[in-house]
Simulated assay, not measured.
Amino acid sequence: MTKYSKLLSNVIGQKIDYFSLDALQKAKLFYDCEFYTRAGKIFFAYQEYNYALDAFLKGNDGEGIVYSYTKLGRIQNAIDAAIKFKLYALAGSLYEQIGDYPNAARFFSLKTPVKAATYYIKSDMHYEAGICYLNSERYDLAFFEFNKCKNPAEVQQGLQSLEEVAVVLYFDKKYIEAYQIFIKLKLFDSALICAYELKDKQLIKESKILIKKMSA
């Protein structure tokens, strides 16, 4: 018997007047007939969070489980469930809620790297923030964060990653974006090559002036 047949059988067999039931009675009926998510949503709406959690667990409803644990103040359980169900934004929000910004950033970075960067910055993790901005094509911000790293090795690695992106942009014929990065990195010979590709006389002139100053 399917759960739909079970629901109908219960209503008819027990002569239940479905429309006379209050919300929680309907939730109990849905629960008994294995409509666990529907029952859980009703229990949750009426702040019966323990019943909601039980229903969501039986229905394997990830979001419902996370929100129910949260309402019950069981934050670590909520985080574990969010990770299990790959609800990374929820996991990030829960870590944010308890002030664990590095872990909040780690999970936000999987879906919303720009948001993750702000939490890495709060944690004084500028290299990680730079990588998030780099992955979001926010090259100016990536350059800024890499240069704020206290560890010289991280500065070097970050700027090298930015240079690699500029090379990829060049071969993708995104010459102006590549030019702008090369200028920031003071790689003026590479910038000049981009300027020639752009056939931009002003940029060619400016690049040559910068090369000359660098050689002086």
Rank of each mutant, 00 (worst) to 15 (best):
A166S: 12
A166K: 03
A166I: 08
A166N: 06
V167E: 07
V167G: 03
V167C: 03
V167H: 03
V167F: 09
V168L: 08
V168Y: 10
V168P: 08
V168K: 13
V168G: 05
V168Q: 13
L169D: 00
L169H: 02
L169W: 02
Y170M: 14
Y170V: 06
Y170P: 07
Y170K: 15
Y170W: 08
Y170H: 10
F171G: 04
F171T: 07
F171S: 11
F171D: 12
D172P: 07
D172V: 05
D172K: 15
D172R: 10
K173Q: 15
K173N: 15
K173Y: 12
K173R: 14
K173I: 05
K174R: 15
K174N: 15
K174E: 15
K174I: 05
K174T: 07
Y175A: 12
Y175R: 12
Y175F: 15
Y175E: 07
Y175N: 11
Y175T: 07
I176G: 06
I176E: 08
I176L: 15
I176D: 06
E177W: 04
E177S: 14
E177H: 08
E177G: 06
A178W: 10
A178R: 14
A178G: 13
A178F: 08
Y179N: 13
Y179Q: 11
Y179C: 06
Y179M: 07
Y179F: 15
Y179G: 07
Y179W: 13
Q180K: 14
Q180A: 11
Q180F: 04
Q180S: 14
Q180I: 05
Q180P: 07
Q180W: 02
Q180T: 12
I181M: 05
I181Q: 02
I181S: 01
I181N: 01
I181E: 01
I181C: 02
I181K: 02
I181L: 04
F182Y: 12
F182N: 00
F182H: 02
F182I: 02
F182E: 00
F182A: 00
F182M: 01
I183F: 02
I183H: 02
I183C: 05
I183Y: 01
I183A: 02
K184C: 03
K184R: 14
K184Q: 07
K184I: 06
K184N: 04
K184P: 05
K184E: 00
L185Q: 01
L185V: 05
L185D: 00
L185R: 01
K186Y: 03
K186M: 03
K186V: 05
L187Y: 09
L187R: 12
L187G: 05
L187M: 11
L187T: 05
L187V: 04
L187A: 11
L187H: 14
L187N: 11
L187P: 06
F188D: 00
F188Q: 00
F188E: 00
F188W: 04
D189F: 03
D189T: 04
D189Q: 10
D189S: 09
D189M: 03
S190C: 10
S190L: 14
S190E: 13
S190A: 13
A191Y: 11
A191W: 10
A191S: 14
A191E: 09
L192M: 09
L192I: 06
L192Q: 09
L192H: 12
I193R: 12
I193A: 13
I193H: 11
I193S: 12
I193L: 14
C194Q: 08
C194D: 10
C194K: 06
C194H: 08
C194G: 07
A195S: 08
A195F: 01
A195N: 03
